[in-house]
Write a protein that binds this DNA or RNA. Structure first.
Lengths: 197, 197
DNA sequence: AACGAACACTACGCTACCGTAGCGTAGTGT
DNA sequence: ACACTACGCTACGGTAGCGTAGTGTTCGTT
């Protein structure tokens, strides 16, 4: 492939990503990208057919994919690894800073919503498998609601990030799994029953 | 007060709210508000000094305030009431549909960020008091991290709403408190220790 | 009845952004 | 060396949004 093409693509993508991260979707304009990247606007349009197309490409590129768990590892280890991975993406990637924009855009832009659904599907797939496996092995209650479990694993992390409520680090990832295993542990029913009376 | 003023204010606010909810911040334009509400643009500018000012007013009006718990009630009842209130605002109010926009705007617009911080402060204040009280009464572990507790109470609800992961209803509110009490209960340490070996 | 405030309407000027056209230049692969 | 393609540059046309001006009208108050 022509190295000029490769260079243009990467420079524009990086610039567009920076603009989105710094100023939100409103800051990602073709003129701004052209000005800051040094790439001519006409050239940008040769690679992306519209501004929305470029925006979608930026998001598509930045979007995290949860890795499949190592089939050798036991469930708890895999669960901890998955949560640490989620924490890492929120700590080290540009994704973290475009997440708010992404959440909003997926509400109103059908193109972005499609990306969002693919991502959620992929994430929930990985996590759901782990939760079911954990249920089978007796680590959590047998009749666990998978979506509820995912909400408890990911929800606190999400709000910690969006509201700056807690520091995002490995310790958080571990404590999330700890809390989850206690809350959804097979002895949880007894705990709740004991509490009710 | 002049009834014309009152009418204009309420009609414009309602129209602006609708536009924000339907199409996000980009849809809330002065021209659109004027057109749909039937109020002349010059009149709108007589009540709000700019488009951003109107947007802020809409958000400020829609923003939910967590009510102070009844001092007569016991902690667990108050906690359940607070969570049911959170659920209700996400189920019945326009706030639910403008939350994504709000999250994004508070990232980049300082005016909105200020509103966001006031809201978080108010919410966390109410919840923090309840969590501390719960700790004192031995309902949850004594050295509980208040912010962590809040994250576990509100996080799953937030993600359930944003990702359409779970139905938002009273049953969810109750199960959130149930899970929370188990995960943060005074016996949680034993649970975790028992699990580790 | 009369005054004043709030309002509607039209028409602006201004800016920012989108997307395109035309032309000349510079780098790539053969 | 050659043709080809990507690229830069400048200049557009078109649209949408913000905020304002001027004029006349309606409504509320006293």
């Amino acid at each position: 492939m022509d190295p000029r093409v490769e260079r243009t693509r990467s420079v524009v993508m990086q610039t567009a990503t920076d603009l989105l991260v710094e100023g939100g979707p409103g800051a990602l304009t073709m003129d701004a990208v052209a000005l800051r990247s040094g790439v001519a606007k006409t050239t940008i349009y040769r690679h992306w057919k519209s501004r929305d197309d470029l925006l979608a490409a930026v998001i598509e590129t930045a979007i995290p994919r949860l890795p499949e768990p190592d089939p050798e590892a036991d469930v708890e280890t895999s669960l901890r690894a998955a949560m640490r991975y989620s924490v890492d993406t929120l700590r080290h990637t540009e994704w973290a800073r475009m997440l708010p924009a992404f959440i909003m855009l997926s509400q109103h832009e059908t193109e972005i919503r499609a990306i969002s659904e693919r991502m959620e599907w992929q994430h929930n797939n990985v996590l759901a498998k782990l939760v079911r496996q954990a249920a089978e092995e007796g680590l959590v209650e047998g009749d666990v609601d998978v979506d509820e479990a995912i909400a408890h694993l990911q929800g606190p992390l999400m709000i910690a990030h969006l509201a700056n409520l807690l520091p995002i680090d490995d310790q958080l990832a571990d404590s999330l799994v700890d809390r989850f295993l206690v809350a959804f542990g097979p002895s949880a029913d007894e705990g709740r029953r004991a509490h009710d009376e």
